[in-house]
Simulated scan of single mutants.
Amino acid sequence: MALQGRVDALKAGAKPVITLEHAAEVPPVPDKPEAFSMKAFADSLPPIEQPNYFKVGFFNKKKAEQANGILRAKYEQEVEERAKEIALAKKKSEKAFDEYERACKLREAALDKLRNLEINKLNEKIERLIADDNPLQRTREEAEELEKVYAEEERIARKELERALQIRSDLYSCNVIFSKYRTLPAIASILEYLESGRCEALSGPDGAYNLYESERRADLIITKLDDVLGSLEKIKEGQHLLYSELKKANATLEKVSEQIKLLETNALNAMWGIAKNTASIAERVEEIAIDSAATAEATQSTAEASRASVALAAKNNELLNSLGYLIAFS
């Protein structure tokens, strides 16, 4: 049941397990380019001033018309060059989106290949288990297979966590931000000050550090991450950037939680199968009075399967912790 649940999830589009053997075959997630707005791009360029034409009179008609012609030609040339510049920017944006879509298709094709490979392996495993007459052996192999999935998911999560922590360490090593302010609430608030134009520098009387300290002392902002996580609505107005980032993190954690619940369900199904199979063997022992050697073997198999299920639960907790830290580290 657990293996079939994994097959159904893969067919529904779940991400396949990317093993080290096939990691190089999967392209990284591409960065999505910003949408191009012709009006916004045109507004960002310096305006083209209308020519100040010479007034044509009776005595200066020829010279004035000649000078006006030069001004008009220059203006029309500027308008034409501006149109070419906008068209070129639009073309570059379209090319960037085409490359992004192509990269997405290449990644999805690679994932589909691994997804089909995993489905085929699981189906072969299911067929072997169905053909096996030993119910405890079947349950034990299902538990071992699930344990491998847990271990691989945990390895990937820990690798992502290590990569994220290394990136953070590399950024902080540049010593742009003073060590006291290297927390998620402080970084988000200082960035919001700079982007909104409330501050133009980090240090100084009118700097971001000073404003942050002033608002902290006045209790206008929340600076402890534990307090922030329990007061999202409270920081919505005063710390909008921090609120937005934590909402994104919560959405990601909800997706992760759904995947964890699916794996938990599969593990519980496996343990339920062990309990049913154990009861079935006990009934057979009473009915046909199998010899002591067979009874000992059944007992040993049950214990091994139980240990595998306990290991699955432990792996699940570790995976949840790893994924949680990846999203919510400070």
Score class of each variant (00 low, 15 high):
Met1Glu: 08
Ala2Met: 07
Ala12Met: 12
Ala14Ile: 11
Glu21Asp: 11
Ala24His: 13
Pro30Asp: 08
Ala35Trp: 09
Ser37Phe: 10
Met38Gln: 09
Phe41Ile: 00
Asp43Thr: 08
Ser44Lys: 07
Ile48Gln: 00
Glu49Thr: 06
Val56Ala: 02
Phe58Pro: 02
Phe59His: 01
Gln66Leu: 08
Ala67Cys: 07
Asn68Leu: 03
Leu71Gln: 09
Tyr75Val: 02
Glu76Trp: 08
Glu78Asn: 10
Val79Ala: 06
Glu81Arg: 15
Arg82Tyr: 08
Ala83Phe: 05
Lys84Gln: 12
Lys84Gly: 00
Leu88Met: 13
Lys91Ser: 14
Lys95Cys: 05
Ala96Met: 10
Lys105Asn: 08
Lys105Gly: 00
Leu106Met: 10
Asn116Ile: 10
Ile119Ala: 00
Ile119Tyr: 04
Asn120Ile: 01
Leu122Asp: 06
Leu122Pro: 06
Glu124Val: 00
Lys125Thr: 14
Asn134Trp: 13
Asn134Thr: 11
Glu145Leu: 03
Glu145Thr: 15
Glu145Met: 04
Leu146Phe: 01
Glu147Pro: 00
Tyr150Cys: 05
Glu152Asn: 10
Glu154Tyr: 15
Arg155Glu: 07
Ile156Pro: 00
Ala157His: 14
Glu160Pro: 02
Glu162Met: 09
Ser169His: 12
Cys174Lys: 14
Asn175Gln: 15
Phe178Glu: 13
Ser179Trp: 06
Lys180Leu: 04
Thr183Glu: 02
Ile187Thr: 04
Ser189Ala: 13
Ile190Ser: 03
Leu191Glu: 12
Leu191Ala: 15
Ser196Trp: 12
Cys199Asn: 09
Cys199Pro: 05
Cys199His: 03
Gly204Asp: 10
Gly204Ser: 10
Pro205Asp: 07
Asn210Arg: 15
Tyr212Val: 05
Arg216Leu: 03
Arg216Pro: 00
Ala218Arg: 12
Ile221Glu: 01
Ile222Gln: 05
Ile222Ala: 01
Thr223Gly: 04
Leu225Phe: 15
Asp227Ser: 06
Leu232Val: 09
Leu232Thr: 06
Glu233Arg: 11
Leu241His: 12
Tyr243Glu: 03
Asn250Phe: 00
Ala251Trp: 03
Leu253Tyr: 05
Val256Phe: 11
Val256Ala: 07
Gln259Ile: 11
Leu263Met: 14
Asn269Glu: 02
Ala270Gln: 03
Trp272Asp: 04
Trp272Val: 01
Ala275Phe: 07
Glu286Asn: 13
Ala289Cys: 12
Ala289Asn: 13
Ala296Cys: 05
Thr299Gln: 07
Thr302Phe: 01
Thr302Lys: 03
Thr302Gln: 03
Ala303Ser: 13
Glu304Pro: 04
Arg307Gln: 10
Arg307Trp: 11
Asn317Ser: 14
Asn321Lys: 10
Asn321Ser: 09
Leu323Thr: 06
Leu323Met: 07
Leu326Glu: 09
